[in-house]
């Protein structure tokens, strides 16, 4: 039986790692996006994600009380110790793939943080409220792109349809709540998350329909286990790049 403090630490790792890994993925677009304005938009979103993860992991480290910081949590954990969903660690692919991944995630965190900002933990509620404002914009950006790519040219429709087909396998995990969330809900630290999956489904399917994208694969195989540290092979490669500097020069300051 874990303590409330341990459950909260675990929950913060899940939230923080999602944002950290997605933020890193988006940063890979910097200098490579299809057009200058989109390059700036993706870099902005990336910085928002990394900022949110920094606040969440800092709070996690404080709650853990083992002398770690947000930096040691980000740079000195192995892949199996990361608790992010596999959706966010998937490689960028083409622009449609990045937008589809972003949209599925944005709807998720939009609904999740809308609830968590009412947490009774004052710091968590503050972080979530600030993040919610940023996420509202991220969702507007990815949703508008979903509509334009899906209902755009034959080529953009095909690419977005392929992206959604491929990404659907990662969508069950978003709602893989277990004893961690249950304990925090029982302790009234966070509001119940039970309605999240249905709300997500409704919101996502409405936009997919408007974007003329079909869900051919709704009953496909769904990956699971990342909240316990199980990941695709892509996370290790991502971490190698993200952590190399901090691990090569552990006392470096920037």
């Amino acid at each position: 039986m874990k303590t409330e403090q341990e459950y909260l630490f675990e929950f913060l790792l899940r939230l923080g790692d999602d944002q950290l890994i997605l933020g890193h993925r988006l940063s890979e677009w910097c200098g490579h996006a299809p057009i200058l304005e989109e390059d700036i938009a993706l870099a902005n979103i990336s910085l928002d994600c990394i900022g949110q993860s920094s606040a969440l992991l800092k709070l996690a480290a404080e709650i853990e009380e083992k002398g770690r910081t947000e930096d040691t949590l980000a740079y000195f954990r192995e892949a199996t110790q990361f608790k992010n969903i596999q959706l966010v660690e998937q490689p960028n692919g083409d622009f449609a793939f990045t937008i589809a991944r972003q949209f599925l995630f944005d709807v998720y965190v939009y609904l999740l943080y809308e609830k968590i900002q009412h947490s009774t933990h004052p710091t968590l509620s503050g972080i979530a409220a600030k993040a919610f404002k940023e996420i509202t914009y991220h969702l507007r950006h990815s949703k508008e792109w979903m509509l334009r790519l899906g209902d755009g040219t034959e080529e953009s429709h095909k690419r977005l349809q392929n992206a959604v087909d491929e990404l659907w396998t990662f969508t069950d995990e978003l709602f893989a709540f277990d004893e961690v969330e249950n304990a925090l809900v029982s302790a009234k630290i966070i509001p119940p998350l039970i309605s999240l999956q249905q709300e997500w489904n409704e919101m996502v399917k409405k936009v997919l329909a408007e974007a003329t994208i079909k869900l051919f694969n709704e009953q496909c195989y769904k990956v699971k286990g990342s909240r316990k540290g199980k990941h695709s092979e892509h996370l290790g490669h991502l971490l190698a790049e993200m952590q190399i500097l901090a691990r090569s020069f552990p006392t470096a300051k920037w």
Binding site: I35, L36, E37, E38, I40, A41, N44, Y137, R140, H141, E144, R148
Partner: peptide, 17 residues
Amino acid sequence: SLHAPDAEMALQNARDV
């Protein structure tokens, strides 16, 4: 100035730039 495919995206890009 900036490039955008339509007015809504122009607003979003303007917000970022």
